[in-house]
Simulated scan of single mutants.
Amino acid sequence: MGEIGGLAVFAAWCAWLSVSDLRTRRLPNAVTLPGAAVILAAAAVGDHLRPALVGGCLLAGGYLLVHLARPAAMGGGDVKLALGLGAVTAMAGPQAWLAAAVGAFVVTACVGGALRLAGRPVAHLPHGPSMCLVSLLALAL
């Protein structure tokens, strides 16, 4: 498929999940988990399994800690999405992984702040779209 084709499939997966999260405030297991499995399989074929596993587990582990400490702040779908996003960004290098890990929280916080300034409610702001957007940007750069 090639790098461009893989990036296009990844972008489509991210778009699907982002739309789902914005509409329903849910990231479906039927999409997040198979996507993560495909990313890890591609990593294995491309001889990048180790960084993908480490990056995926580190990001998902961090998200899991937040979810366990404050379940209302971070959903289980975000934790599962972090597995695939952490894996794919880690394959691009530590800078891409770190940018994706930190950037998603920054973007969600900025969106929440902008909504508050506009007088809109922010009680259940989906985090998945920020995770996907920042991961795509980290890969593109």
Rank of each mutant, 00 (worst) to 15 (best):
G5L: 14
V45K: 13
G61V: 05
R26E: 13
G119W: 06
A109F: 14
V38H: 04
G61C: 05
G119I: 08
A101L: 14
L59F: 15
V88Q: 11
L65C: 11
V19G: 09
R116I: 00
D47T: 08
A87H: 13
G93F: 04
A69Q: 09
H127C: 04
L68V: 15
L53P: 00
W16D: 01
A36Q: 04
A114C: 12
A15Q: 02
L58D: 09
H67N: 11
A73R: 10
G103F: 06
A72Q: 12
L98D: 08
A72K: 08
D47F: 04
G56Y: 03
A140P: 01
A72R: 12
V111H: 02
L85R: 13
G112T: 06
V31N: 03
L59Q: 08
H127M: 06
R120P: 06
V45A: 15
C110G: 13
G128E: 07
G75S: 04
G86A: 13
P126R: 05
M91C: 15
S18Y: 11
L139W: 12
A123N: 01
A73K: 01
W13E: 06
L58I: 04
A92C: 11
L68Q: 13
A11E: 12
A30H: 10
A99V: 15
A60E: 14
G103Y: 02
D78N: 10
V38Y: 07
H67Q: 11
T32I: 03
A11V: 11
M91H: 05
L17Y: 05
A15K: 10
A15F: 11
P28V: 12
L125T: 07
L49D: 05
K80T: 10
S135P: 12
P94C: 00
L139N: 08
V107H: 02
L53I: 10
